[in-house]
């Protein structure tokens, strides 16, 4: 099922399908490793409701929900762990 990253609940993982938004945002996310196919875990949401904390490629990244809403994901990735991006 396709949705956007901001809809994913804390503690859940999903897989990036595509990134929308403007080119600046897109390129920044891409060069930091948020590429299609990457598994992303939503770690938590900040106390005031925004931003979110993500775990991706073995590091923690914080982005706002607004930015997350331009990242399209499929949330079936919980057990299709991509070798390089998730460590057990």
């Amino acid at each position: 099922m396709a949705s956007t990253l901001n809809q994913i609940k804390p503690g859940c993982s999903c897989k990036v399908v595509n990134i929308g938004g403007n080119n600046i945002l897109k390129n920044r996310l891409l060069c930091m490793g948020v590429t299609p196919g990457t598994v992303v875990e939503v770690v938590k949401v900040a106390p005031l409701g925004d931003p979110m904390e993500l775990k991706i490629r073995n590091y923690n990244l914080s982005i706002r929900k607004k930015e997350a809403s331009s990242i399209f994901v499929e949330d079936n990735a919980a057990n299709t762990k991509n070798s390089g991006s998730e460590v057990i």
């Binding site: 390129n27 590429t35 196919g37 390089g84 991006s85």
Partner: peptide
Amino acid sequence: HADNIDYDEHSAEIYSEIEKIVS
């Protein structure tokens, strides 16, 4: 500048190469 470029493919490609090396 980032405004004028779209190197979507490019980044994804580099990352898949990196994944190969790392694994």
